[in-house]
Simulated scan of single mutants.
Amino acid sequence: MTQQPFSRPGAVDLSGLASTTPAQDAPFGGPADAAPAQGRSAGSYTVEVDEQIFQSVLEASMTAPVVLVFYSASRAPESVTYARDVSTVVEEYDGRFLVGLVDIDKNPQIAQALQVPQVPLLYILLDGRPVTQPIPGALNLEELRTVFQQLGQQLTTQGIGGRHKPNALGGAVASEDGDEPAMDPRYAPAQDALERGDIDAAVAEYEKLIASNPADSEAAAGLAMAKVL
């Protein structure tokens, strides 16, 4: 499947959305008809979003993309499973994305602000705004991995390299504006090989990374660059 490219102009600015309504907790990881818990972490890079922390989630998107997943256990029980699957895939990217899970029954103001017509629905936010068309329907895990691999490649192409810090904001939060993301040590051998002009070694290192994690879009982009060199 194909995915809309990131496009910042013309998006809806949500920064003025008020945070007024406290949310009630429900256990994450329970039965299929149970909703994820609101306002707390469900993983290193997953947070259940309520109206009290929505502004903080928007601010997190100023450095790295935030994925909002809208679900409703009462209207579409399968959307709860879908939300968990998105979280599973996002966690594989080690901070490249932060996923915010939004129960539209408990947080109607957020759903109204983004004009959510159905659940499940997925939005990608960057700089506090939606930057792709919403992705409707419940994709399976492999389809989700394809979508996020494409998104990761687009990020690399556009020079967007920020990462979220784990386990902050009840889940994750982006590093401060202007901070350069630290180099992931996994890519150091390939980078070192490129710097000393050993292109074959760099290709081999990137191929090792991709073999261990086919969803690693940074390694895929690095491999493509090394092959061009």
Rank of each mutant, 00 (worst) to 15 (best):
E51Y: 06
K106M: 14
I210Y: 08
S72Q: 11
S19A: 14
A23S: 15
A60M: 06
L122G: 01
E142V: 11
L121S: 02
S79D: 03
T46E: 06
Q4H: 14
L17V: 05
S87L: 12
D13N: 14
Q52A: 07
Y82M: 06
G128E: 00
S87C: 09
V49C: 05
A34P: 10
Y45S: 01
E176S: 15
L194C: 10
L169V: 06
G170H: 01
T81I: 12
P181Y: 08
A219V: 07
L155M: 08
S56E: 13
A188L: 15
A113C: 03
A168C: 05
P108W: 13
V131T: 03
L125W: 04
G10R: 06
G197Y: 00
A226V: 01
Q154V: 00
A168Y: 04
F148A: 02
G100R: 05
Y187G: 03
Y123G: 00
T157M: 05
K106S: 15
G161H: 10
V173C: 00
V47M: 08
A168E: 10
A224G: 02
V173H: 08
R96H: 01
L126K: 12
A174K: 01
Q52L: 14
T2M: 04
L126V: 12
P27S: 10
D103L: 07
S44V: 05
T20S: 12
P120G: 12
L151W: 08
P214E: 08
A219M: 03
S212Q: 15
G128Y: 02
T81R: 14
L114S: 06
L14W: 02
E48I: 00
K208R: 15
V131N: 00
V69Q: 11
G171F: 03
A23T: 14
N213F: 09
V116E: 04
L114F: 05
L17W: 12
I124E: 04
R163H: 09
D127C: 07
R8C: 01
V102Q: 03
A224C: 02
P36Y: 11
A193E: 01
M62F: 07
A76Q: 10
T88C: 03
S175Y: 09
P27Q: 13
L98Y: 03
L122V: 13
N167W: 15
L125P: 05
P120N: 07
T157H: 07
E91M: 09
G29E: 09
Y45D: 02
P27M: 11
D103C: 12
Y93R: 11
A18G: 01
A64S: 12
M183I: 12
Y206Q: 06
L151G: 05
G29N: 09
F28H: 07
D105A: 15
T157V: 11
A220D: 02
L141N: 10
I160M: 10
F97N: 02
E195F: 13
E48L: 02
A138R: 09
R186L: 13
K106Q: 15
Y71A: 00
Q191S: 10
I160Q: 08
Q112S: 15
S212K: 15
S72F: 11
V89P: 07
A204S: 15
G95C: 03
V203G: 10
D192V: 11
E59A: 10
E78H: 12
V131A: 06
E78Q: 14
P117Y: 08
P136H: 03
A193Q: 04
L126R: 15
G30D: 12
A201W: 04
K208A: 11
D198T: 01
Q118L: 13
D13F: 10
G29D: 08
A32L: 09
L98S: 00
Q149V: 05
P27C: 06
G16S: 06
A23N: 13
